[in-house]
Amino acid sequence: MNWSEICIHTTQEAVEPVSHVLHESGASGVVIEDREDLFRDWDTKFGEIYDLSPEDYPEEGVLVKGYLPVNSFLGEAVDQIKQAINHLSSFDIDLGLNKVTVSEVNEEEWATAWKKYYKPVKVSDRVTITPTWEMYEAVHDDELVIELDPGMAFGTGTHPTTVMCIQMIEKYIREGDSLVDVGCGTGVLSIAAAKLGAAKVHALDLDEVAVHSAVINTKLNKVHDRVSVKQGNLLDDTPSEQDLIVANILAEVIVTIPEEALKLTRPGGMFITSGIIGQKQAMVTEALEKAGWTVMETIEMEDWVAIAAKKPDRVD
């Protein structure tokens, strides 16, 4: 089968929402080509990045590429993708050039091209993420290795927003904690939480494809006895008295749930949020504080921000 490559020339801010649009449209895999990758100070002791060629990257901005099968519905699908991406501007998301191009690729070529860039990556003091097709053995006794197969769901676990979430989970989680992962994607945050000591993890995603991928990955990492994956919208039907709630989703969505998250979290519990572009940090912080959360820590990576907030030990 031949595939059509849908390439959107956009900005770092728009990478996640554009990727989501592609997946919602049935794109089988997403490739992100960001020229900034050429100039980052990569930790390569695990061999995770190699042979990056400037010719593979745009002169400015970011290329987000999705893949659809070549069939009679292709033209309609491309038009819907363009409309959905244009609609993102109503959320005050900078789309940059927002140039969409379409080209045809061979299935074998597509299936292997993106994998050469996905290698084992140490994302925190204890957690290393490796794709299932790479042979990797833990370097240290306390190292926790997550094997991940993204399949058709969004998320290899190496995006700055995911990395920061894992770092914060590692810092704030305690043995035996309960946790909710809002918008779980491939399940990487849920798996990390379980490996770091969570006794019960509720992984939620509205996307059926993501739920299927998360179920596979929790079994692959042998944490399916502690991670329950369910299709659901945000915090709907979430059990109360949670120790942590983690939401690596768009800032515009995060600001809609702080009040509900506060009700579902035990006194002293934590709310860890990411997926926040720097310019929207103040908006999220304001929503958290207005709902009654106390911001404990903010970390930044590239243009992204993650926030850890605490529910007061006593709520009057």
Score class of each variant (00 low, 15 high):
Lys65Trp: 00
Pro54Arg: 00
Phe73Val: 04
Phe91Gly: 06
Glu55Val: 11
Tyr67Gln: 06
Glu59Ile: 15
Leu74Cys: 03
Asp56Gln: 07
Glu107Asp: 03
Ser90Thr: 14
Trp110His: 08
Ala84Gln: 08
Gly75Asn: 13
Lys82Pro: 13
Asn106Ile: 05
Gly66Gln: 01
Val102Arg: 10
Gln80Tyr: 03
Leu97Asn: 12
Leu95Met: 11
Leu97Trp: 10
Val64Gly: 12
Ser90Cys: 05
Phe91Ile: 03
Val100His: 03
Ala84Val: 05
Ile81Pro: 07
Lys65Val: 03
Ser72Tyr: 11
Trp110Leu: 04
Ile85Pro: 15
Trp110Ser: 03
Gly61Pro: 13
Glu104Ala: 03
Asn71Pro: 14
Trp114Tyr: 12
Val105Glu: 08
Glu107Met: 01
Glu59Leu: 13
Ile93Phe: 13
Asn98Val: 02
Glu109Phe: 09
Tyr67Ser: 07
Val102Ser: 07
Val64His: 10
Gln83Gly: 06
Ile93Ala: 14
Val70Glu: 11
Ala113Glu: 13
Pro54Asp: 00
Thr101Ala: 02
Ser90Met: 04
Asp92Glu: 15
Val105Thr: 09
Glu55Cys: 05
Ala84Pro: 06
Leu63Lys: 03
Asn71Lys: 05
Ala111Gly: 05
Val70Ser: 10
Leu95Asp: 15
Lys116Glu: 12
Phe73Asn: 02
Glu60Asn: 09
Gln80Pro: 09
Pro69Val: 00
Val105Asp: 03
Ser89Asp: 12
Pro54Gln: 00
Asp94Leu: 11
Ser103Tyr: 01
Pro58Gly: 00
Gly61Thr: 04
Asp92Pro: 15
Pro54Ala: 01
Asp92Val: 12
Asp79Gln: 08
Trp114Glu: 13
Leu74Gly: 03
Ile81Val: 08
Gly66Phe: 01
Ile93Arg: 10
Ser90Gln: 08
Val105Lys: 14
Val78Glu: 00
Ala113Ile: 11
Ala77Ser: 11
Val78Pro: 13
Ile85Cys: 13
Gly75Ala: 13
Gly66Leu: 01
Trp114Ser: 15
Tyr57Thr: 02
Lys82Val: 15
Val105Cys: 08
Glu60Met: 05
Pro69Met: 00
Tyr57Trp: 04
Leu97Lys: 12
Val62Thr: 07
Asp92Ala: 14
Leu74Ala: 02
Gly66Trp: 01
Lys115Phe: 06
Trp114Gln: 14
Asp92Lys: 15
Ile93Asn: 14
Trp110Pro: 01
Ile85Trp: 06
Phe73Ser: 04
Asn86Gln: 09
His87Val: 06
Val100Gln: 04
Lys65Tyr: 02
Val62Phe: 11
Tyr57Asp: 00
Ser90Gly: 04
Gln80His: 03
Leu63Trp: 09
Gly66Met: 01
Ile81Gly: 03
Lys82Gly: 15
Ser89Glu: 15
Gly66Glu: 00
Leu88Arg: 11
Tyr57Cys: 04
Ile81Phe: 05
Pro69Thr: 00
Lys99Pro: 06
Trp110Ile: 01
Val105Gly: 06
Ala84Tyr: 02
Leu68Tyr: 04
Phe91Thr: 12
Gly61His: 06
Tyr67Cys: 05
Ile81Ala: 01
Gln83Arg: 13
Lys65Pro: 08
Glu60Gly: 03
Thr112Pro: 10
Glu108Tyr: 11
Tyr67Arg: 08
Asp56Lys: 07
Glu108Val: 10
Glu76Gln: 09
His87Ser: 06
